[in-house]
């Protein structure tokens, strides 16, 4: 009984390792997004369809901001004067608006997924 469990555990661990290796190994494209004066630069991000993208968000304001998108299902706080990483995708073609939850009237942008 324990031998079977041990076998399965080893199998699960191996699968997890492969999965993790796959996800971090692939040459994920990096896209930069800057926050300044509670605005996103660039306002529109273009990314290819069905590709995972690493979003490098740099907050140049002294105040924290929260990157939020209902369409992308993403939510992350970026402390003032810091940078962070958000993985998005792979996504089908379309427009995915995002905003800064702390300053939503000014911090607005969208991801445009092109074929």
């Amino acid at each position: 009984m324990t031998r079977i469990i041990r076998y399965y555990l080893r199998f699960a661990l191996a699968t997890l390792c492969i999965l993790l290796a796959q996800t971090s190994m692939a040459g994920t494209p990096v896209i930069e997004l800057r926050i300044k004066d509670h605005l996103f630069f660039p306002e529109t991000l273009e990314i290819p369809a069905d590709t995972k993208v690493k979003l490098l968000v740099i907050n140049e304001d002294p105040t924290p901001e929260e990157f939020e998108s209902y369409e992308l299902n993403r939510e992350k706080v970026i402390p003032g004067n810091r940078k962070t990483v958000i993985f998005i995708g792979p996504l089908p073609q379309g427009e995915y608006p995002f905003f800064g939850e702390f300053y939503p009237k000014t911090a607005q942008g969208k991801v445009v997924v092109t074929p």
């Binding site: 994920t28 993403r74 992350k76 993985f87």
Partner: peptide, 17 residues
């Protein structure tokens, strides 16, 4: 964990937006 890329991204289950 998917957002952190610790878990693989998977397909969308439904869209009720």
């Amino acid at each position: 964990l998917t957002q952190a890329d610790w878990l693989p991204p998977t397909a969308i289950l439904w869209d009720s937006g």
